[in-house]
Design a protein around this nucleic acid. Structure first.
Length: 261
DNA sequence: ATGGCTTCAGAATGAAGA
């Protein structure tokens, strides 16, 4: 089984890229999308359903939004933190969480807030959101201990080797100790970075800034992940970043990451 | 260089992304 994650930076703008990619990667069973940037009523279901695929969406106007495209029907679709947590305050106003089950694997598709700038209101929101994610996953695993995968755009580089240049990381959003600690608190529930089962060295990235020729110079960040419970970690046989879509004209600034079990 | 691109929304001296 293959599961992929891809922040497409607008599913409507990237529709042709996404459909072509799925058609050229027939072994991918489930594709988790982030930053769909479209209200549910306007989501372009038809290009997917015409090819026999199933779509599960949780979107909003202009910003954020997550979706899952699956070759087979999925079950137990859960939108937002409120599907699990009682009091989520303002944390579901931005649509960033959708979960479902395929092949007895719980797949949680996430778009973690960016945080804007260290110390800003959005940065504080990001840290608060990650704490809610920890509570959400703790409750989810307690209610249902099946194999679980969380994937998506985490907007945090876990280690210095996940950044092309970490020298100023204390001042850089996605790289600060507080963000790493908040994400590690999530992972301490029992999740492991499956990419690192197969690849130890630096220089592998999933996002490159549109500006300054960052992709051509490979000045990237690895911020898109598959984190899996121990049973899935043992079952994983590959985890790869597919840089090819980043070479296309009018690309997303992120590229897909695929895990295979 | 509070920058450099790109998206959406809607008409901005914009907001947000990362």
């Amino acid at each position: 089984m293959q599961i992929a994650t891809w922040n497409v930076n607008s599913v409507r703008t990237r529709l042709e890229h996404v459909v072509n990619w799925l058609q050229s990667h027939p072994a991918v069973d489930v594709l988790c999308l982030q930053e769909t940037k479209v209200v549910d009523a306007d989501f372009p279901h038809q290009p997917f359903t015409d090819l026999g695929w199933h779509t599960y969406i949780y979107g909003q106007k202009s910003y954020n939004g997550v979706a899952i495209v699956s070759r087979q029907p999925m079950s137990d679709i859960k939108m937002g933190f409120a599907a699990i947590l009682d009091d989520v305050g303002d944390l579901d106003e931005q649509k960033r969480v959708i979960a479902a089950i395929a092949n007895d694997i719980r797949i949680v598709n996430l778009y973690v807030p960016n945080g804007s700038a260290v110390g800003s209101d959005k940065y504080e929101y990001k840290l608060r959101w990650l704490d809610a994610l920890r509570q959400y996953l703790q409750a989810l695993l307690a209610n249902d201990p099946r194999p679980t995968l969380i994937c998506g755009d985490f907007n945090v580089a876990l280690e210095d080797i996940d950044i092309h240049d970490a020298s100023d990381r204390a001042n850089q959003v996605m790289a600060t100790d507080a963000e790493r600690e908040a994400l590690q608190s999530v992972l301490h529930l029992g999740f492991k970075d499956v990419f690192r089962k197969f690849t130890a060295e630096a220089g592998h990235y999933s996002w490159w800034d549109y500006r300054g020729g960052s992709f051509q110079r490979n000045r990237g960040w690895r911020i898109d992940y598959h984190f899996v419970t121990e049973n899935l970690y043992e079952r994983a046989i590959a985890c790869e970043i597919d840089v090819e879509p980043r070479r296309l004209t009018q690309p997303s600034d992120h590229t897909p990451v695929i895990v295979e079990f």
